[in-house]
Computed example of a mutant assay.
Amino acid sequence: MNDHAIDADVEPRALLVDYLREDLGLTGAKVGCDTGQCGSCTVLVDGRAVKSCAMLAVQADGADVTTIEGANPATGLSDLQEALWKEHGVQCGFCTPGMVLTLQQLLADDKAPTEAKVRRELAGNLCRCTGYQSVVRAVLSLVGRDCGPGDE
Rank of each mutant, 00 (worst) to 15 (best):
M1Q: 09
N2E: 04
D3G: 14
D3S: 13
A5P: 10
I6A: 09
I6F: 03
I6N: 02
I6L: 10
D7F: 02
D7P: 05
D9C: 11
V10E: 01
V10Y: 03
P12Q: 10
R13N: 04
R13V: 00
A14L: 14
L15S: 13
L15P: 04
D18R: 09
Y19L: 06
R21N: 00
L24C: 01
L24Y: 07
L24R: 11
L26E: 00
L26C: 05
G28A: 07
G28E: 03
A29W: 03
G32F: 05
D34M: 01
G36M: 00
Q37M: 05
G39H: 04
S40L: 08
C41N: 02
C41E: 00
L44Y: 11
V45N: 04
D46Q: 01
D46G: 00
D46E: 04
R48F: 00
A49S: 12
V50G: 03
V50F: 01
K51L: 06
K51Y: 03
S52D: 09
C53L: 02
A54F: 06
A54S: 14
M55L: 14
L56S: 05
A57I: 03
V58N: 04
V58C: 06
V58E: 01
Q59V: 05
A63I: 05
D64K: 10
D64Q: 12
V65N: 05
V65K: 03
T66L: 11
T66S: 11
T66P: 01
E69H: 04
G70W: 04
G70P: 03
N72F: 05
P73N: 12
G76L: 08
G76E: 01
L77I: 11
D79A: 15
Q81R: 08
A83K: 13
L84K: 08
L84E: 04
E87L: 12
H88K: 12
G89V: 08
G89I: 13
V90N: 12
V90R: 04
V90H: 10
V90F: 10
Q91H: 01
Q91N: 07
G93D: 00
F94Y: 12
C95L: 13
C95F: 14
T96L: 06
T96A: 14
G98P: 08
V100M: 10
L101W: 00
L103Q: 07
Q104I: 12
L106E: 10
L107W: 10
A108T: 07
D109N: 14
T114H: 03
E115I: 03
A116G: 03
V118R: 10
R119L: 00
R120D: 15
R120F: 15
L122V: 12
N125M: 05
N125T: 02
C129F: 09
C129I: 11
T130H: 12
T130N: 06
G131I: 04
G131V: 02
Y132K: 04
Q133S: 11
S134E: 09
V136M: 13
V136Y: 13
R137M: 07
R137E: 12
A138M: 05
L140C: 10
L142I: 02
G144S: 13
D146N: 15
G148F: 08
P149S: 08
G150V: 07
G150A: 08
G150R: 11
E152A: 11
E152Q: 09
E152K: 12
